[in-house]
Amino acid sequence: MKKGNLVLAAVCAVLGVGIIAVASGYPKAADYGTGVPGPGLWPIVISIVLLACTAILIYRTLKMSPEKNTKIELWTTGTRRVYLTMGILFVYLLVLPFLGFIIATFVLELIFIQWFAKKNPIITAIISAAITMVVYCAFRFVLNVPVHTFGIFTI
C-alpha cells in the first residue's frame, strides 16, 4: 500500500507540475483585456489542489500504521492474466480499423472464450459468432450506429 501510494503521489506530482509549467505559458487575462482570467488559470488552480492532495497523501502514507499497510499484489497469476488481456485488447484495437468489426471481434471473442472457458472449439466458435452478430446487428440495424464503415469486410 505504502509503495503504491507513493507511486501514485509521484505520478500526480509530475502531472501537476507539468500542467502548471505548460499552462503558465498560456495567454494571461491582460492579453484579452476583458478582466476575465485567461485559459491557463483554471488548470493551474486545479493542479495546485492536486499537488496539495498529493502532499497530504504522502504525509498520511508515511505515518500509516503497519497493519493498514496491506501489500498490493501486482505480479500474481491473476494480474499477469490481466496484463495479457490488456495486451490482447490493445492489439485488437490496432487491427480493428483494418479487419473491420465483425472479423476482429469474432477472433477476439474466440481467443478469450477458448482461453477462459476451455470448451470444445466448435462451441466456442458458435458462442463467439453469436455474441458478435447480436452486438453487430443490434447496433448496426436497430440503433443505426455505423459499425460497418471501416475494415475490409463492410456489409
Partner: peptide
C-alpha cells in the same frame, strides 16, 4: 463469467464507439 466478461469487452468497445462513431473514443475507453 468466462463468457460474460469477453462479452462486456465488446460492449465497452462498441458503446464508446457509438457515441461519436469514433475509434479515438474507443482508445480513450481502453
Amino acid at each position: 463469467k468466462v463468457i460474460l466478461t469477453p462479452a462486456i469487452f465488446v460492449l465497452c468497445v462498441i458503446g464508446s464507439y457509438a457515441m461519436k462513431n469514433s475509434l479515438f473514443d474507443v482508445w480513450v475507453m481502453l
